[in-house]
C-alpha cells in the first residue's frame, strides 16, 4: 500500500503545491478506495449495485474534508486513522439516512408497525391484570412527566430518537440542527426527566422492574 509516509510527511505533502500535493492526494485517494469497503461493508454489502459509486463518492468527499481540516489534525493517532475516521463518519452518515428512509417506506407499504425494539418482546408478554395496571400507570406517569418537563423541541427530539429510534442525524436534518447539538439537547432532557422522577420518589430502575 502507498501508506509509506509518516504523519509529518503527509502533512507536508498535502500542504504543498503542485505535483507534490497531487501525488499525496492521489495516494490518499487510493488508500481510501481500499479501506472504505472493508470499513463500511457491514452497512452496505459489496454486492449492492451502488457500492462502487458510493465508495468513490465517499472517498472524494473525505478528501475534500481532510484538506479543509488539515490544520486541525493534532497527531494523537496515525494520520491515516484520522482520515479513516472522517471517511466512516461521512459514509455511515449517508447510509443511515438512506437505510432509515428505505425501511420506513417498506414498513409503510407492508403495513408493519414501526421498528420493533429489543425491549418489545418482554414488554409484550401477556401479564396479569394487576401488572397490566401497574404498567399502564408507569406509562401514563412517564408521558405526563415528559410533557410537563420538556420543552416542545426537547419533546419532539426525544420522541423521535429515544422512543421511535430514528437516527440522530436524520432528526437533526428535520429540525435544522446537527447531531452534536441534538445529543446535548437530549442529554439535558434526560437529566431533567431523571431528576423529576427522583423528585416524585421513583427511579428508572424501579420503574423498569414493572415491565420484567
Amino acid at each position: 500500500m502507498q501508506n509509506q509516509r509518516d504523519n509529518e510527511t503527509w502533512l507536508k505533502d498535502l500542504s504543498a503545491e503542485g505535483t507534490q500535493k497531487e501525488a499525496a492526494v492521489e495516494d490518499l485517494h487510493q488508500i481510501l478506495l481500499r479501506i472504505l469497503p472493508a470499513a463500511l461493508s457491514r452497512w452496505l454489502p459489496d454486492s449492492s449495485s451502488h457500492f462502487e459509486t458510493f465508495i468513490e463518492d465517499t472517498a472524494q468527499e473525505t478528501l475534500l474534508r481532510v484538506l479543509d481540516k488539515l490544520d486541525t489534525f493534532q497527531g494523537r493517532s496515525k494520520f491515516t486513522t484520522w482520515v479513516y475516521k472522517i471517511g466512516v463518519n461521512i459514509g455511515l452518515g449517508e447510509l443511515r439516512l438512506k437505510k432509515w428512509k428505505e425501511t420506513s417506506l417498506d414498513k409503510l407499504e407492508e403495513g408493519k408497525e414501526a421498528d420493533e425494539m429489543p425491549s418489545e418482546r418482554f414488554a409484550a408478554e401477556d401479564p396479569s391484570p394487576e401488572t397490566q395496571l401497574e404498567r399502564k400507570n408507569v406509562i401514563s406517569m412517564v408521558q405526563r412527566i415528559m410533557k410537563e418537563e420538556l420543552t416542545p423541541r426537547q419533546y419532539k427530539v426525544m420522541m423521535a430518537v429515544a422512543v421511535e429510534g430514528k437516527p440522530l442525524n436524520l432528526v437533526a436534518e428535520e429540525v435544522g440542527s446537527n447531531r452534536n447539538a441534538l445529543y446535548k439537547l437530549m442529554h439535558d432532557a434526560r437529566l431533567r426527566l431523571k431528576q423529576r422522577l427522583e423528585r416524585e420518589g421513583a427511579s428508572p430502575i424501579e420503574l423498569l422492574a414493572v415491565f420484567k
Binding site: E116, M117, E120, A123, A124, V163, H187, L208, F211
Partner: peptide, 17 residues
C-alpha cells in the same frame, strides 16, 4: 405493547444517564 416498549426504551436510557 408499543407504549410499553417505548416506555421501557426511555427508562433504560434514563437509567444510564
Amino acid at each position: 405493547a408499543n407504549s410499553s416498549a417505548m416506555t421501557v426504551q426511555l427508562l433504560q436510557t434514563l437509567a444510564m444517564t
